[in-house]
Design a binder for these strands. Structure first.
Lengths: 220, 220
DNA sequence: TAAAAAATTTAGACTAGTCTAAATTTTATT
DNA sequence: AATAAAATTTAGACTAGTCTAAATTTTTTA
């Protein structure tokens, strides 16, 4: 049984919204993320439940079934592999690939994914630092911290981003912050929780709370 | 105005069926190629005509407008570029790529196509020898002959195939016939128009009329 | 804990693309 | 040229996915 483009999107979004704990996702949250109305979401939820992809009781929110989780992770694997392809092979910027990968992720064919994966050298992370599920569907979520939680004087490594919006990624580019950057927190302003940080032992940078909140780092 | 997956498929098929001369395509022919019913085709034709993509008068068959031709050629360009990618980069066989390219060809994004084209080194032909339209939409159809038209004793170069069915392509693989093979016609059997041919000055091969009809060659 | 607010679901409707069956037009054949 | 056959179109209906408006359930709050 094949799942439609739309069904795959719902599963992917439910996966994203239910987070690490796999908690219930609300109808309204889905309506917002799918850019549809709550009524439409309800219809789709009934359908996904009938196909055994989600656990759904009226008014109670939804979680993925094991089957639904499997499908969602396959979509995520494809999305992230295509993003690697677009950046590494075609030369796109990390701020340009999301929408295209959003289309490519729904191309069927297991063998295509596996050949793509091999061609790319079995990458473990996508251009935004998000982990790529392996062929068996294992998704290892590294537990990075957020830059806001880093103490004064600490040195951390930038490993990913929470916000994938092009405007945010472009802002990071202009700031000289990229994956792998070594960040040392030199100063924290109590008032607005903005900070001054030194990048790779070089230039010092002023960072707003808004940015700090969305930068994932490895504390050592 | 974006064209749907389905609309693009109709345009591509109309292009293919109207041939070099751009002649009218019948409703029934479209029904057959799209694997739908004639009634469904009629509905779609009305829609495509309204969008200015085809010239359509009831009962008269259809041709592409300039706009429709442009859209069709873009789809063909994408299809053939993706086929090159699948074969050259991912290692698929030429018999395995059609269905996957059928999906990939509908991924929007002009820039994706152009970057893919550059990544592949601006190939002129796809893995089946079909010419790839350039970025401006020029499609240069080389005028190859068919192997059936080759005279006894002639030496020709294999340049393409008319049948793209996996079973046919696999048959060619098993026979040792690939694009670029030098074919010398050693013998023609009047009875069934089968032939014996020598490949690249090496082994001699028996070829049925059915195969000859579908092999495109360059006569020198 | 009852009323108000928020969230969710149901009812009925719309579009794209498809279908079958019937009607119509064109083409082929006596 | 009249009729039969083939091709095409129309009419009416169905599914997937969406919508608005109204009804219902849950949650919040006073």
């Amino acid at each position: 049984m094949q799942n439609s483009f739309t069904e795959e999107n719902y599963l992917k979004i439910i996966h994203a919204l239910s987070g690490r704990d796999g908690g219930e996702v609300s109808t309204n949250a889905l309506a917002e993320s799918t850019a549809t109305r709550a009524a439409s979401v309800t219809d789709m939820l009934r359908k996904l439940a009938e196909k055994g992809l989600i656990n759904y009781k009226k008014y109670q929110g939804v979680t993925l079934t094991e089957l639904g989780e499997k499908v969602a992770i396959k979509v995520i694997r494809k999305h992230r592999l295509w993003e690697v392809f677009l950046v590494e092979k075609l030369g796109f910027g990390w701020d340009e690939v999301h929408d295209i990968a959003e289309e490519l992720e729904h191309i069927p064919s297991e063998i295509l994914v596996e050949k793509l994966d091999a061609f790319l050298g079995h990458p473990r992370f996508d251009p935004h630092g998000d982990p790529i599920p392996d062929a068996k569907g294992n998704l290892m979520e590294p537990d990075y911290g957020v830059l806001t939680d880093v103490q004064l004087g600490e040195k951390v490594r930038m490993m990913g981003v929470l916000d994938h919006a092009p405007s945010f990624l472009q802002h990071l580019d202009r700031s000289g912050l990229t994956l792998g950057s070594l960040i040392e927190v030199k100063e924290i302003n109590e008032y607005d929780r903005s900070a001054s940080v030194q990048i790779d032992g070089g230039p010092t940078l002023f960072i707003s709370l808004e940015v700090s909140k969305n930068v994932l780092v490895q504390r050592r």
